[in-house]
């Protein structure tokens, strides 16, 4: 490195990132076969979030009842006495647990797992680079997602830079609620952007995601004006975002203000994440909410196409009529 002056918002090779998953053979997060690096920490609090382990920035302990063999090694390993294994399973005292991971290391059965692992950008890059042949043959690459990647900008910028320098296609998957300058910086090494647009009514947006709508729209415009291809993604959640009106107004916004959008994916709500919530001692608010029907998804996709967006796709699990 020739430059000794640390760049304020630039990438930093020394800056570790907290990653909760590196998913290889990822085929849902952009073109081709990809590896998705999931960054921990998100500013939004969407009620339907299907990656609740990505919300908190801090590392968290999860207990898998099906794996536990009752060896109790974890109890002894915990320096804070935060664990209790009773008849109804493991209780984790989240106040006492400082997520040191000693219990997880002690468990022979992987029943305890620490969500969130520190990587240097280079370490993450090395993991990502393993599937290079599959990216090359599929037009795929690396996607940095979350959580919200812009919350760990120095790590993410460096990971994207390393990837791009190695000739990999790079995608940034953002919820859009971020500092514009940070996003701009990350865009330097991102070949494309996956951008979430969830709801176009400001009050509803605040209610459903916990944050204001306007910064999201502002960033969407900025990302589009950067010229990077954008794929918009909208989670279609029954009773939350699935009104025809909502889809139509997102469509209008894309058609009128986001010229670099190439494709819009409607992602059907799925309800398989309940167990993750309970492992984190969090509440899954959408318990029992039924899946959408394929017909309903198709109707919304029609609505979306009518708005004038070039390519609209829908995917996800649906109920049989």
């Amino acid at each position: 490195m020739s430059c000794s002056e640390p760049e304020g918002r630039g990438g930093d090779p020394q800056q570790t990132g907290v990653v909760f998953n590196i998913q290889r053979f990822s085929i849902e997060d952009g073109p081709g076969i990809r590896t998705t690096v999931f960054m921990k920490g998100c500013p939004m609090r969407c009620v339907w979030c299907h990656n609740p382990e990505g919300i908190a920035f801090e590392r968290q302990l999860m207990w898998f009842d099906v794996r536990c063999i009752g060896a109790r090694d974890c109890l002894e390993a915990c320096p804070n006495g935060a664990l209790e294994l009773g008849r109804s399973g493991m209780t984790i005292d989240r106040e006492r647990c400082d997520a040191c991971g000693r219990c997880a290391d002690a468990c022979p059965a992987r029943a305890l797992e620490l969500v969130g692992k520190d990587y240097t950008p280079h370490e993450a890059f090395q993991e990502v680079y393993r599937d290079e042949a599959f990216y090359r043959n599929s037009g795929g690459g690396v996607t940095v997602s979350g959580g919200e990647p812009s919350m760990q900008p120095r790590f993410v910028a460096e990971l994207l830079r390393l990837s791009k320098e190695a000739g990999l296609h790079t995608a940034l998957d953002t919820c859009g609620f971020a500092s514009g300058t940070v996003l701009e910086k990350l865009l330097e090494s991102a070949d494309m952007v996956l951008l979430d647009l969830k709801h176009m009514d400001p009050a509803k947006h605040l209610e459903l995601t916990g944050v204001e709508l306007e910064p999201v729209l502002e960033n969407a415009r900025m990302v589009s004006s950067s010229g990077r291809p954008v794929w918009v993604r909208t989670p279609v959640v029954p009773g939350c975002t699935d009104s025809a009106e909502n889809i139509a107004s997102i469509g209008r916004f894309i058609a009128e203000e986001l010229p670099s959008v190439e494709r819009w994916d409607l992602l059907a709500f799925n309800n398989t994440c309940g167990s993750k919530y309970s492992r984190l001692d969090m509440t899954w608010e959408l318990e029992g909410v039924p899946l959408l029907s394929a017909e309903a998804m198709e109707a919304l996709a029609e609505k979306a196409r009518a708005a004038g967006v070039p390519e609209v796709c829908w995917s996800g699990t649906t109920r049989s009529s």
Binding site: F25, I27, I33, A133, R136, N137
Partner: peptide, 8 residues
Amino acid sequence: KLAAYLRG
């Protein structure tokens, strides 16, 4: 994507 996987 499957075809690309086979190439890889």
